[in-house]
């Protein structure tokens, strides 16, 4: 089975978020970009599935040449080849359309994304792409197996989990617990340098939304400290000052 994994480069989880150009752009200076952690899980699980059922894993990233180190890392983890759609994505729909266009001549049994990227947190690409492709979606899955022509997955639902089956092909989005992410070994890193990375253009950009400006959460006032010997006072304050209890 052939699996496509959509990989988004995101700022490292420890990045201090700041903005430039009058708060209209994310400040990328000194920022280390990594594979979006949920996409890394999707990639690892895709590799496990192809090791069991045959086939290969292709990764796709929508982004400018600056995203190639992240793509090489995905190849080092074990993807067979990569596609980079050469444009700077403006929003989720733009990203999904670019992926849709780039794979129009290919067929995949399963398409994986992460449940959301940790920068824009929109969690839309899986749903948008599934609908553009006319495929079903298994969103936010913590386990996924292939049985014959079906996928059996466990997805998060409000207040619990649901085990579902869905025929292939379909789109799935990875949630934490799906697997343990793989760390690339030296051999993988060496091989990644020569693996195929196709660059395709996408010019028909159409986006419905525009990000106008950014801001940081308002700073909190000073913490009100309570004497541990009289800790019960916290409960009283939560009742009298905050009306919470």
């Amino acid at each position: 089975m052939n699996i496509l994994v959509c990989v988004s480069p995101v700022p490292d989880t420890t990045t201090k978020i700041t903005f430039v150009d009058n708060n209209t752009k994310f400040n990328t200076e000194g920022v280390q970009f990594i594979i979006n952690p949920y996409d890394e899980l999707a990639l690892t699980r895709a590799l496990e599935l192809t090791e069991k059922h045959g086939g290969e894993v292709t990764v796709i990233t929508v982004g400018t040449a600056g995203t190639e180190p992240v793509i090489r890392k995905a190849l080092a983890i074990g993807a067979a080849k990569a596609i980079r759609v050469n444009c700077d994505p403006v929003d989720s729909l733009h990203t999904a359309q670019a992926i849709h266009s780039a794979i129009s001549n290919e067929s995949f049994d399963l398409i994986f994304t992460g449940r959301e990227s940790i920068d824009y947190n929109s969690g839309q690409v899986a749903g948008l792409l599934a609908e553009l492709l006319g495929m079903g979606l298994l969103n936010i899955v913590t386990s996924i197996e292939v049985e014959g022509s079906d996928v059996i997955a466990t997805r998060d639902i409000d207040g619990g989990k649901e085990k579902v089956s869905h025929p292939l092909p379909c789109v799935a989005s990875a949630q934490k617990d799906l697997c343990e992410p793989r760390i690339p070994n030296m051999r993988g890193i060496m091989q990644a340098r020569t693996k195929q990375l196709n660059v395709v253009e996408y010019a028909d950009a159409y986006n419905d939304t525009e990000y106008l400006s950014y801001d940081l959460p308002p700073a909190k006032g000073a913490v009100k400290l309570i004497d541990p010997a009289n800790a019960g006072e916290l409960i009283d304050l939560l009742r009298s000052e905050k009306k919470l209890i």
Binding site: G123, Q124, G127, A130, L137, I140, T209
Partner: peptide, 20 residues
């Protein structure tokens, strides 16, 4: 969780811009 999955799918069906 239901809204997270429905919003983007509905947005394509309705040709609507989507913000989550």
């Amino acid at each position: 969780y239901a809204g997270k999955i429905l919003a983007p799918i509905c947005s394509v069906k309705l040709k609507a811009g989507c913000v989550t």
